[in-house]
Structures are given as C-alpha cells and as structure tokens.
Design a binder for these strands. Structure first.
Lengths: 216, 216
DNA sequence: ATGATAAATCTTGTATGCAAGAACATTGAC
DNA sequence: GTCAATGTTCTTGCATACAAGATTTATCAT
C-alpha cells in the first residue's frame, strides 16, 4: 500500500480533503500533520507540495497551506468538463469495447440495479463509481481514464450530495440503462450525448447542488 | 517573479522538460539540480514532487526521478483529450464571448495570418498559442481554461513538430478562419466540431507525429 | 577471462536546525 | 474604551545531517 511515507501522507491528506475531514478553507499546519502521522515536517511538506500541484490545496508564501474552496461556480465548471470527458469516454467505449469490457459494464450495471431498487444511496454511490470506471476502462485510453478518475475523485463529495436529492438514484439508474444500450450497440454519438447529459448538472440540479453545499 | 525557490525550480525544470533540455527518460539528479540552481536538495525535492504529481516526472522509490516518456500512443491519447476540451471551449466561447473576447480573438487571428503568409512557422507557433488561449478565455470557464493551458503546455513539443510538416501552417490557418466564423456567429456545435477536428491528429497526421518523434 | 561476492561509494529518504517573515499579544497614548 | 505601536512567539522556508537502500567497483575463485 504505502510505497513511501510521502505517498502515504499524500493519500491520507487527500482523502481527508475529499471526505471533508479537512474542510475547504481549513489550514493545514505542518507540525500538526507531522505529529499526527508520526513523521517529521519534511515529508509532510512534500505531500502538501503535491496536493498543491494538483490544485487541492493552496500554498500562500510564508502563510501556510489551506484546503482550496472551489465555490459553486467552479464546481459547476468542473462538472462541465467532467461531462465532456465522460462523453468522450462513452463514445470511445462504444467503438472499442471488448467482450471483457461488456462483461464488466453489465456486472456493474447489475449491481447498480440492486442498490438502486434497494434504495440504498450509499451502496449505489459505490456501484455507480464502478460503473463509470468500467466505461473509462472500455474507452481504452489510459490518459483519458486517468483524467476521468482524478476529476471524478475531486467531485466525489458533491456527487454524493447529488445522490441524496430525491429520486436522483432512480433517475440516475434509468439513465445508466440507456447509456449501456448505446455503448453495447456501438452508437458512439448516442453514448456521448447520454453520458454528457448524465453527468452535467444543469438547471435545477445546479440549484440543488448550491443548496446542499450551503447546508453542510 | 519568483514567489519562492520551489516555484522557481518547478518552472525551470518544467521548462527544461517541455523544451527537451531534459529528454524523456533522463535522470533528474537531486544534488546535480541543487548545485546547478545554487540551492539545497530540499527545495529541489519539493519541486520534483510537484512535477511528479502533474505527471511530468516519475519518482521511483530509492532510485530517483526520471522524465516521463509518454510514447506515441499516449501522446495520441493526450491529443484526443485535448481535442475534446478545445471543442468544449469553442462551443462555450460561441455562446458566451464578449466584445472584448471578440477583439482578442480577431487580433490573434490577424497575427496568425501575418506569420502564416510570411511562412514563419516559429512565429506562427506563438501566434497560434495566443489564438487558442483567446478561445479558452472566451469560454469563461476558469477551470476549463486551466486544464486546456496545462495540456497545451504538455503537448507543446509535439505540436511544434506538427507545424513543421509541409503545409501544416497554411492548413492550420485556414481552419482557424472557419473556427473564428463559427464562434462569432454563435454556432456552438459548429465551433465544437471544427476545433475538435483542428486539434485531433487523425490518420496520416499521426504517422507524421510518430515519424517526427522518432527523428529527434 | 569471466562470474560471483563483498566492500566501498553514492543517492535517496527523513529528521533536525536555524533564520526570516507573519501572527499575536502586550503596553501605552489619546 | 479604542486604536496603534512594539515586542514576543509561532510558523514557514531552506539548509544541513544522518541513516538506509542502491549502485558501482574491486577482489577472488573457477
């Protein structure tokens, strides 16, 4: 798991940010983190540098690191880009999927059906993640898959909030059905369009996002 | 200019990689870099950590940092994603551009015309960059613009090679014309399609890329 | 001469030390 | 009582130190 201390710290702090243990705007004190993880400041700093590079924390000169607070508008922009990348992944998947890809996608879809009909939004969250990752893999573009996973991860907390909105799980699963159909039919443009719509948060869904963001 | 030493080092090393001073696969020795830039190993390591986080260098445990060698296939994948993001930027620009955006785009386009008809592919390279950045700006999506700039930067060396292919400058400029027309007409879908085609390297252009990559 | 083994050297990973800037508190003036 | 100025403390930024793994070199046996 832990190649070295820095990578472990990077993952730990990143998870802390994703899971909202370190809230947006929170100060990340070097010595505090160092003592907490039982290491010295050096690897902590190196981990923070990495998180700075990928845009998760801001390092203000001589004033320490803070968790970046994206704000609703930027979150929207990120979903906008995510929608486009997912659309691309879908269209590529429709053209390139193998038998193994089909199996994986259908399995993830079946799991989604189970958690969806059970009304278990937490379980659905994980199954949904697997479903989308299966599509990234089926795109057979390593770079695209990496980009999608990274963005997916950053949007994780907000995506989770989305699923709590009433009927969103059922709606999401219904959309998945159409997406699977388009991909397995090899209809690249349809897969692209459906995935784009599935991911983007338009109209009232943006209002929902802002509302749920404000309430935590 | 230099906020702090680490940022300066990050930029210097990144530029070195982009400009091929540090070739793909090259080892980045910490003490060597430290003495070269007149600093200690600590900030060098922190800079390398950042470059590792954005995928420019690989850090093998206990064995040092090397410049990542993407290889033709991955380069192709990166252009594929770039094309998609540029397409999105174009479609958003077509819907959102302001008077100031129009002015900037037209000015950059005029400069492209000048360097193109002069046959100066180096000058065209820079004007082309300004042209594309003007479109990112006109998209009025800060996140998208950042992603585009970052990817554009990483693809810089290969893009440059592309422009050396015969007639590519003239072809590129002609495509710009149609793109400007679509954006300023507010035709989002047309702008998206044209930009996607403009950026993606399909068919023989991929062969050209591989050939030019091999020859350096 | 070639291969293996062991020793020396080099490099990385982490800790610690020190100086400079920022935050904070105390004191004094109005 | 409020505000400002100054001194103290805390935190960061970088350098240096040291230990452990990796690499290279040298020696020896076959």
């Amino acid at each position: 798991m832990s190649e070295n201390v820095v990578q472990r710290l990077r993952d730990e702090i990143e998870n802390g940010i994703i899971s909202n243990d370190f809230a947006p705007g929170a100060r990340l004190d070097e010595v505090q983190l160092a003592t907490r993880f039982g290491v010295s400041r050096t690897p902590v700093r190196e981990a923070l540098m990495q998180l700075n590079a990928i845009g998760l924390v801001e390092i203000r000169p001589r004033r320490g690191a803070v968790v970046i607070d994206p704000g609703p508008h930027r979150i929207f922009e990120m979903f906008e880009v995510m929608a486009e990348l997912e659309g691309l992944a879908g269209s590529l998947a429709a053209r390139r999927f193998t038998d193994a890809d089909r199996t994986t996608i259908l399995a993830a879809h079946a799991d989604c059906e189970r958690s969806s009909s059970a009304g278990d939004s937490d379980a659905y969250y994980y199954d949904n993640e697997r479903f989308h990752k299966a599509i990234y893999t089926a795109s057979h573009s390593g770079f695209l898959a990496e980009q999608c996973v990274a963005l997916h991860r950053r949007l994780q907390p907000y995506r989770r909030l989305q699923l709590r909105v009433r009927n969103r799980v059922a709606t999401s699963f219904a959309e998945h059905g159409a997406i699977v159909e388009a991909i397995l039919a090899g209809d690249a443009e349809q897969a692209r369009t459906l995935l784009r719509q599935h991911v983007s948060i338009q109209g009232e869904r943006f209002s929902d996002l802002v509302a749920t963001m404000a309430s935590r």
